[in-house]
Write a protein that binds this DNA or RNA. Sequence first.
RNA 1: GGGCCGGUGGCGGAAUGGCAGACGCAGGGGACUUAAAAUCCCCUUCCUGUAAGGGAGUGUGGGUUCGAAUCCCACCCGGCCUACCA
Length: 873
Amino acid sequence: MLCCYRQAVSGRTTSREKRIMADKWTPQEIEPKWQKKWEDDALHRAKIDSSRPKYYAMTMYPYPSGDLHMGHWYAIAPSDTRARWMRMQGYNTLFPMGFDAFGLPAENAAIRRGIHPKEWTYANIERMRIQLRSMGAMFDWDRECVTCDPEYYQWSQWFFRKLYDADLAYKKKAPVDFCPNCNTTLAREQVWGEDRHCERCGTPVIKKDLDQWFFKITAYAEELLDFNHMEWPERVTTMQRNWIGRSEGAEVVFRTENGNHELPIFTTRPDTLWGATFMVLAPEHPLVEELVTDDRRAEVEGYVEQAHRMTDILRETADREKTGVFTGAYAINPVNDERIPIWIADYVLMSYGTGAIMAVPCGDQRDFEFAQKYNLPIPVVVAPKNWDGEPFAEAYVEPGIMVNSGRFNGYPSIGKYSLEEWSPDLAEKYGLPADLRPENEGVRAVTHWLEEKGVGRFAVTYRLHDWLISRQRYWGTPIPMIECPSCGIMPVPYEDLPVTLPEDVQFMPTGESPLKFHEGFRYVKCPTCDEIAERETDTMDTFMCSSWYQYAYMEKHWKGEGALSVDDIPFNAEEGNYWLPVDQYTGGIEHATMHLLYTRFFTKAMRDMGIVDFDEPMTRLYNQGIILGEDGEKMSKSRGNVIAPDDLVHYYGADVVRGYLMFGFRWEQGGPWSSTGVLGIQRFLERVWTLVLEELPAIETPKTPSPDDDQVRALSRKQHQTTRKVTRDMDRFSFNTMIAALMEFTNYMVKAKETSVAQTKTWDEAIETLLLLMAPSFPHISEELWARTGREHSIHQQAWPSWDEELAAEEIITIVVQVNGKVRDRFDAPVDIGEEEAKAQALATPGAQKHLDGRQPLKVIYIPGRLVNIVVK
RNA sequence: GGGCCGGUGGCGGAAUGGCAGACGCAGGGGACUUAAAAUCCCCUUCCUGUAAGGGAGUGUGGGUUCGAAUCCCACCCGGCCUACCA
């Protein structure tokens, strides 16, 4: 398509000095100017407008560390571009911003440098607001939320209270993960990696027995597995699914020989019950103390003690040799009344299932190794089809035939497979029947029989734990609870919220929470009996604040004055009815099993409280990648590879930084920064500046005295094609190809400007379209050029350009000629060329003739508008 | 051990069954300039050839197809997640 226009520009004669050069593009001047103007005009204020469709775009808010780094820009600027694009497409768009302002760094700064966390945090927020403003984003600052404002956290406390009333918050003494560096407990989700380290500081965690507050997120485990009606990346839903870790099986009740205690176990393989030759309890199991016989007591206590001291890191190393001790006690296997020994071993975890297992050495490799080591019997109960009757050398976990299992002998058992998965292929592989139903398949049949006998039942177990939200830190939302010596645990009445965080506190070098030592805060009258009672001195996990901030954006400091009540709605309902839920959420994948799970839980709980009428907080989610230093490593001060966005904005302007962040990478993948790559965007914007502002050459181009139709049509075609491409790429977050299309269009126009096409109305339309297409990505320069070319109002209030498929369509296409799949020639043809005509022309091309070399084509394949493949011999 | 994502020029990346390498960076050559910068034009996957051309080529090996970077199977490498989950 470039060919026709190459001809047109081949006769260019104009000399550059005849032109009047435009003044230079100085982003340092125009960017602050427009930012101020937009703010003065309240351009970005999002107001309810029932005549337009709404669009709630949201990006994860930053922690106010005091410096907006490249990662923030990378996450926020492209999100802003897309929100702006939606706005130009006619959606009434809300794109808010706020600060995740509670948290440890503030407190650490206080301990180390003597600055009050509040002062530190608000000063950082002030600085980051300025940095965020330099981005030129369309944030509606009127809705900004700052989670450490009492007007904000009173609602966090209100939520706590509501969850408590709904029986979704409870206090429990439990062995919990504790970070010795941060001096606080952590939720399961906040313990990362193989070495089980603190998500924030990287220190390995230890176990502590503490009385802590939990949210009953497990009540929603099943519903949280439902990802229908939401468009979230599969990566995230898979991670959440694995984290929730649903598994189906049976709960079977064993009984102890002495004392007749119930000893329920969970198993995914009830069909192997006849092979259970011993039981194993977790060392922490509450019955251990009672069951252990006197002759075994010393050894058992020693083992329990040792297991307790051992870190989880060691305990959970899978390839460690199994250890355990016999308790001296026996249990009765309910299916055959056999007497089996009860052991304790640290490979059984108290935190999963019932903390006790039946050990089936023939069907579980861990049990097998344990049985071998301690000389316990290994009878076979599920065998492969052609089993020779010999003892197993290792556990057999695949589908097989039940043996030695009483009335179930001969039943096929498909083990880990579900009936839905069971296919003829699998049946053949294992030599089992293909037609399996709950009645004739071992696992299901045994479960049914257990239920009839009353010793077991179908059961589902989740890996998901309740969310531990207590933090032994000062700089967080106080938990609104009081413990009274006579009345017990009492919630702070709704009307008394907020429980204000006292400011006159002393920070301990030990890292202990100053709230524990603040008498005025700690001691309080019981809301019921007026006796002196104690306040909860722990504060909430900051993920509590972020679980509902999308609702806080409905109105800043909603009901900031006056008492709260149980019947309140935690946001402006009118705004909420209009904007909610979030249509598009963007942010990092690192929150997949934390924030993104918690906020789903919150919304479901809110729905059940009657506060909202939808099930999911964010309809669509998209995750950007990570921007690395030039050396390909993660940016860090210690590596010295940090690129500071402030410096770049100062030097190149925000539009260039935004542009490079969108152009240089696939957004979801990220990648290394390139300081020369940025120059490409700078050159591009300079080209656009010149293209739009530089005066046209005097009309003296002799070779093309009047614009010819082909040129005009070609320019218009390019414009419509670009509009189509940019629109589609915006929709799929393909910012890099979107900007490439803008560059191509610009390059085309720079060349076309040398011809008389630049004096046409079509030219003006093309310039205008280019500016409009650039507006979401490059808000400042496009606004400046819009104004300088005498166009009215803000460019950001204009409608997104549309395209016409007919005008975008090519008239002449190039058809590739292949012989046996190799390109041998090509020819130009009208777009509507018929199949026979195309084939005939292809066969006639010199390239085809040469490579056919007289041979008769076996087959000729025509792909309309693309190619002809001639197959020979 | 399991799961997911990825592997394309010197580099970032494009192309999701139909011309591999769009767009950009870096590099080379040229124009302009007293000179440089900036700007503009041309070249730039590799091998072979003066050229026209020919051959090879998307981690490796196989397969499906007229045709594969793209789909299927096996393997190698890198990254992320998860891990004694009963």
